[in-house]
Amino acid sequence: MKEILLAVRHSRWLKFMALPLLLIVAYQLWASNAESPFFPTVGVIAGAFLDTWGGAGFVENVVPSLTNLAVGYISGVVLGLAFGVLLAKTSVIRIAVMPIISFLLALPAVALVPLFITVAGIGPAMSQSIIAFAVTLYVLVNTVDGLVNVDSGLVDVNHVFRIRGWRQIFLVLLPSIAPRLLGAGRAALSLSILIMVVSEMVGASSGIGAVTLLSQQSFQYSTMWAGMVMVAILGIGLNALYLMFERPMLRRSGISPLARTMK
């Protein structure tokens, strides 16, 4: 008995799952008693999840959503890094454009959805461009802030060893702000998932967000739950995936993940 308790105490997995499992069990007990159409039991939700997102539903709705997410996110990161490096190198232009960029950053990205729908029409181009726009801004600001505040000792080292141009950017400057960039990339990923779902809910007929909201409007509550579970899983899963890649990259840049979390 004592050994089991000890194992429970030391297992990260159990600690991690304790509260969610408790909540799921409590929900199941409550839902099977309440018999409310809004709250189907766990089994019904799981069945609807497989029906909605398995097989044809996967190709029709999950793949396009994830494609939009990937295209928007990756182009946003590339553009953000490129413009960020350019702006960091040119101080006058940087100071001149920063107010506009701060304004666009303060603008809640989801508020751009009506504008982009009107201009780009309903479709993948709309979702992709809003995501790319928001991610670009976010990565750009963090790149500029990081590069401008780079340790002056590092700049001196570059001078002494005559490291210049692209080599300086890719081998010295960007790695030195890697922890910050990786953090920004993670926040931008969360933001992209949110924009993806919101843009599909406002203006799309297919995709994860559209299916979720449409099923709510057509009283198919177990499908709605399947959509909600899907969105939650995407949020948690993509974040976990990102962390898996982030850890080795941080190690390469010479900063242990531990040092970063303590900061």
């Binding site: 991690f16 949110l194 959509g227 969105v231 939650a232 949020g235 948690i236």
Partner: peptide, 15 residues
């Protein structure tokens, strides 16, 4: 658990 819940997009409960 809290760290895991945090990345859930704030739109999940909307419908």
């Amino acid at each position: 658990t809290f760290e895991a819940i945090r990345p859930i997009p704030p739109i999940v409960l909307l419908p």
